[in-house]
Amino acid sequence: MAPALVVLAIGIVVPAAILVTMSFWSRKGLGFDMTPTLANYRRILDEPIFGAFLARSFTFSGIVTVLTVLLCYPMAYYVAFHVNSRKMLWIVLITLPFWMSYLLRVFAWKVILGYEGVINASLLELGLIAEPLQVLLYSQTAVIVTLAHAWAAFAILPMNVSLEKIDRSLLEAATVLGDGPATRFLRVTLPMSMPGVLAAVFLIFIPTMGDYVTPALLGGPDGAMIGNLIQLRFGPVNNWPMGAALSVVLALWIAAIAAVFLVLNRTAQSRLA
């Protein structure tokens, strides 16, 4: 296991250390002024855009996470409990779309949500709308829908794993002890699948917090997220130290949310028990 640790050290620790260091630098001409300064962090505190974007990203990711987990749980449950002989096929079917480039899937949604896209065309055809809906594309809706679709497999797989792991005799035990299907689900299946739900929440929430591709392509002017701000600092804005500071703040923000969530979860678990 040592080689893995070395790779991770080189790949994670060192870059992370440099990232943090750079966040205390400032931009100077073509290079950097390496005098440590808190200027970047002060700007993040002072200028409303950064806080607003962190909040917006949190909202977006939160909605995406809740939506995805809620929509995917029944699917994970179905595969775990009601698919017997072709389980592998179902898992492959669920994962297959995710073998496709993320970018392509984002573009695919552009086709569906577009002005002349499938949804607008169908609604027009049905006479439900007179004009194509503009709110579908280049909007926050588009970002949320696309992200939810893109991360579905990441929600299903861990939840499915933890549902599969539930010993069926526990459910039978609950039944024999007097629980009907609904009570049994709430008292055994759900609490026991919580690790999977938690994993799904983390697997979706964290990457979507930092996503910038989907908002850039589908979000329109109001759909941008914190990731876009960071990305811009390394692109056109060309202020790497500021980008580094933003990354550090984002990482801390995510860590804080994750910590709160973990604590909540632990309390919930112990209360359940």
Partner: peptide
């Protein structure tokens, strides 16, 4: 936790950190 760190840190932060690393 250490091994799983890249999973719990948004991709962009990693990309950025690596970019800076390689650049430095």
């Amino acid at each position: 936790t250490f091994v799983m760190l890249p999973l719990v840190v948004a991709g962009i932060i990693f990309a950025v950190a690596l970019l800076i690393f390689v650049n430095r």
